[in-house]
């Protein structure tokens, strides 16, 4: 990775959180238990505050499932980030996960989606309007 613009790197459990040009970026690598999900949520919110970040990008392309607990954590994290004037963008959601979230009735209000981290960063850095809300 190009280190230009990197403002900070920290680890929540085994998951690295990198801040680049005002975007807090995390790639969730595999299935996390509830405790780890909560821990990650805390770390992300704190990192947004510490860096005065304008956005959070969560790459979930490695995740085969997102259940109501993980969905609720993502939703409340987005709310907290929003109060600190930061957007939350989910990237890499698998089709099976999207279908499951709909069947669960999870709306993820306030969470945006983008195809990949590059596109998400572009939205945040250039302050572009959301592509589509994950409704």
């Amino acid at each position: 990775m190009d280190t230009e613009g990197v403002e900070g790197v920290l680890h929540a459990g085994g998951t690295p959180i990198v801040t680049i040009t005002g975007c807090v970026i995390v790639a969730i690598r595999d299935d996390l238990d509830d405790q780890s999900v909560m821990h990650l949520q805390d770390e992300l919110v704190e990192e947004v505050a510490r860096r005065g970040a304008r956005g959070v990008i969560i790459d979930i392309s490695a995740l085969e499932i997102v259940d109501t607990f993980a969905g609720r954590m993502i939703g409340s994290m987005a709310q907290m980030a929003r109060m600190m004037n930061a957007r939350t963008i989910l990237v890499g959601m698998r089709p099976a996960v999207a279908m499951t979230l709909v069947e669960l009735g999870m709306t993820l209000v306030g969470v945006e989606t983008a195809l990949n981290a590059d596109k998400a960063m572009n939205l945040i850095v250039n302050d572009l309007p959301p592509v589509a809300l994950a409704q």
């Binding site: 499932i65 259940d67 089709p95 099976a96 499951t100």
Partner: peptide, 17 residues
């Protein structure tokens, strides 16, 4: 199939929790 796996594992996660 991957969709069936995802659906079932998600359901299991809910019920086990």
């Amino acid at each position: 199939s991957s969709i069936k796996k995802t659906k079932f594992v998600t359901a299991v996660s809910e019920i086990a929790r």
